[in-house]
Amino acid sequence: MTDKVAIVTGASSGIGEATARKLRTQGFTVYAAARRVDRMAPLAEVGIRPVRVDVTDDASMVGFVEQVVAESGRVDVLVNNAGYGSYGAVEDVPLDEARRQFEVNVFGLARLTQLVLPHMRRQGSGRIVNISSIGGKIYEPLGGWYHATKFAVEGLSDSMRMELAPLGIHVVVIQPGAIATEWSGIAGQHLLATSGQGAYADQAERAAAFFMADPTGQASPPSVIANAVAKAATARRPRTRYAVGRGAKPILAARRVLPDRAFDRLMDAVLRNLSRVATRQAARERRLADQRG
């Protein structure tokens, strides 16, 4: 496997960092791409090659793929992990921000895929692994634009899977559930900044309380996603989708069997309950901090 080459985007933290490390242990030459190249110094210490890449900058992506091919001669696996969650009521989110989320979560993924495909076609093999979310199949209030991007990733991946299969290239979707990364905290901050005042403030406060804490204390570590990516990258015949992480499989199963209105009620009840748990947890932590102070 020492001649296999993998690219992982969004590799400066969380799922991307864990995936880069896992693929390296599997024998891949790994290129770790992210804007925050300084945060990838620990990856370089284990033989991973960090490169500053902005998936909203076409020249940055073109130069990056050219560098990988010039240095390593091939691209075997592309893990499209770069993305973020910008939450807020559809009425409140500026369209410029909505467009930016599509640029990062969808168009950056699509453009980097376009750039590696000629090399994979020439090889007659390759894997495109797209990090989606259970949010590509379900929905929640105040997450319209984020869910729209992930629904788009799911549809784009399905179409690519069919058109690339005759060329020996597999397309795989990873659907994370609750994962312990900085994603949730960032999403909660965006939510409060966007809809923390006005008509949606009550909903925003409840949702942010959930996002900015792990109310169950049991969110899965990023390594569970990295392990799924490694399976997708190395299996002779990978599955089309891997739903992994806390809650992923039962939530997706509920969505498949429940009518829309029933699922609406289920999601509302779950979010309200988790918000209450998170609020109580935050209150306990404040009391403990006061006692220590």
Rank of each mutant, 00 (worst) to 15 (best):
E91D: 15
G185I: 04
L142T: 09
W145N: 13
I138S: 08
H190T: 02
G143H: 04
A98T: 04
L95A: 10
V68A: 06
N130A: 05
I169G: 01
S157C: 01
M160W: 10
A187Y: 03
S132N: 14
N105W: 07
A178M: 15
V79I: 13
M160G: 07
N130Q: 07
M160Y: 09
F151W: 13
G168M: 04
R161H: 00
Q114K: 13
Q175W: 04
G126H: 04
Q114L: 11
I138W: 12
L142R: 05
G124R: 12
Y139H: 14
A152F: 01
I186R: 12
V69L: 08
R127V: 00
T149R: 09
V79W: 06
E163V: 01
E91Q: 09
V68G: 04
E154N: 07
L167C: 08
F107L: 15
V79P: 10
Y87W: 14
D158N: 15
Q67R: 15
I186W: 15
T113W: 00
R127E: 00
G124N: 12
A70G: 07
E97S: 13
I128A: 02
S86W: 14
L109Y: 02
Y139N: 12
G177Y: 02
D92A: 14
D92P: 00
D92Y: 07
F107H: 10
S72K: 09
Q67P: 11
G136Y: 01
Q189A: 14
F151S: 04
E163A: 03
G168Q: 07
L192Y: 00
G85K: 02
Q189W: 11
P118R: 08
V77P: 02
I174Y: 02
V90F: 15
H147Y: 15
A98Y: 06
G88F: 01
A98G: 08
H147L: 14
P94Y: 09
G124Y: 13
N130M: 03
P94R: 08
I179A: 01
N105L: 05
V106N: 10
D96C: 14
V173R: 15
I128L: 15
G88W: 00
L117E: 01
I138L: 06
P118S: 10
N80M: 06
L156M: 14
A178N: 14
Y87D: 14
V104H: 09
V129P: 06
G168E: 04
E97G: 11
G73S: 13
